[in-house]
Computed example of a mutant assay.
Amino acid sequence: MLDVRAISKRFGHVQAVRELSFQVAPGETYGLLGPNGAGKSTAISVIAGLLVPDDGDVHVHGERITTRSTAARGAIGLVPQEVAVYPDLTARENLRFFGRLYGLAGADLDARVDEVLEVIGLTERAGDRSSEFSGGMNRRLNIGIGLLHRPQLLILDEPTVGVDPQSRNAILDSVEQLSGAGMAVLYTTHYMEEAERLCDRIGIIDEGRLQAEGTRRELTTSIGERDTIRIEASGHLEAAALAIQGIDGVVEATSADGSIRVLAVDAGAVIAEAIAIVSGDGGNVSSVEIAQPDLEAVFLHLTGKALRD
């Protein structure tokens, strides 16, 4: 659905985006994860046809995107980082206004407005002015505007910045539903937990360049990170740890202070057999903890700095 081919963009002496390439398939949520100033919003502006790249190009559904390509840009729903709604209009009036700009009219417009209000959870507040809404509610309305014309690709640029936890969760729920319905979603964020929750694949971007991409598991595995299992138990733990060491997928197993620490490629694939070994040797398992490596560790490894630096 989206094919970004080696785009670059410079502003004076600042190279905002450097030969950025990636693809997004229908029904996939692709996350661009990086700190503020990494080049995410500039990349979004180029992809949406708002900025002309210095090099490279962008194709949506096979059509090349330019600042003049009306038809190709019509396949995109853009939700900018800054909220773009009219405060003196109600939620329904905002949606009807932007729907008419998209070319919707009559019964189709009315039905689509009702559908979008349901998706963004504002049906009961449809008659209230957006000036009366919280920041999170206005961000949900902002997403609704981007959905009105049934885009094939939805671009969300930092949609949860500055919102309360309840609204943030509602936004994330909505995004999950959209990708599940077959829409391609490009999602930029500097929140690691959002990328881990929503995204099928993640591109880590820093200083305008794509540093790595893949699923969370692929990214953490690529830097040698492993799952950690901690089994607290009584019994012959040294012998149990030695036996666990022989399980396929276990990198290391050691015992100390009434527990066994296991490093594994995939904790889910070995946990049952490890517990069975401890219990089968007369041990009594009191607790099990699993810790998986996160994207913060990947980002630190690739860039030498924390995600929020």
Results as ranks from 00 to 15, higher is better:
L104D: 00
R139Y: 01
G282W: 15
R18T: 11
M183T: 07
G280T: 13
A269K: 13
R197V: 03
Y191K: 00
L147C: 07
S134V: 05
P165S: 06
G283P: 09
L50K: 11
T66R: 00
L307W: 05
I260D: 00
A184K: 00
T215D: 08
L122C: 06
S167A: 10
D200T: 14
K40Y: 12
I290K: 05
A25R: 15
I247D: 04
N94Q: 09
A48H: 11
A291Q: 11
E63Y: 14
M1Y: 11
C199R: 07
F98G: 02
L154Q: 04
E19D: 14
S287Y: 13
P293I: 09
S21T: 03
E19T: 13
E193I: 05
L156W: 01
I231V: 14
I271C: 03
G103P: 04
E296S: 12
E115T: 13
D281G: 15
T221H: 15
A264C: 09
R18Y: 13
E238P: 04
G282F: 14
L109W: 08
E176K: 09
L154N: 00
F133T: 06
E194D: 11
D294S: 14
D206H: 12
Y187M: 01
K305T: 11
M137A: 02
E238N: 15
S222M: 13
D227C: 07
I7S: 05
E213Q: 15
D173W: 14
R64V: 10
A269Q: 11
P26M: 06
P159A: 01
H149D: 03
V119R: 10
A84I: 13
E252L: 12
L33D: 11
H13Y: 10
P165M: 04
G280Y: 09
Q15A: 14
L109I: 08
G27D: 02
L141Q: 03
K9T: 06
N94C: 07
A243N: 13
R96I: 01
I145H: 03
G103Y: 07
D164P: 06
R230S: 09
E273T: 09
R261G: 02
E118W: 14
H190I: 07
R68V: 08
E218V: 10
S131K: 12
L186V: 06
E82W: 09
G214I: 12
A105I: 06
R5H: 05
E213V: 06
I145S: 02
V60G: 01
A233F: 03
A233V: 12
F22Y: 13
G224M: 13
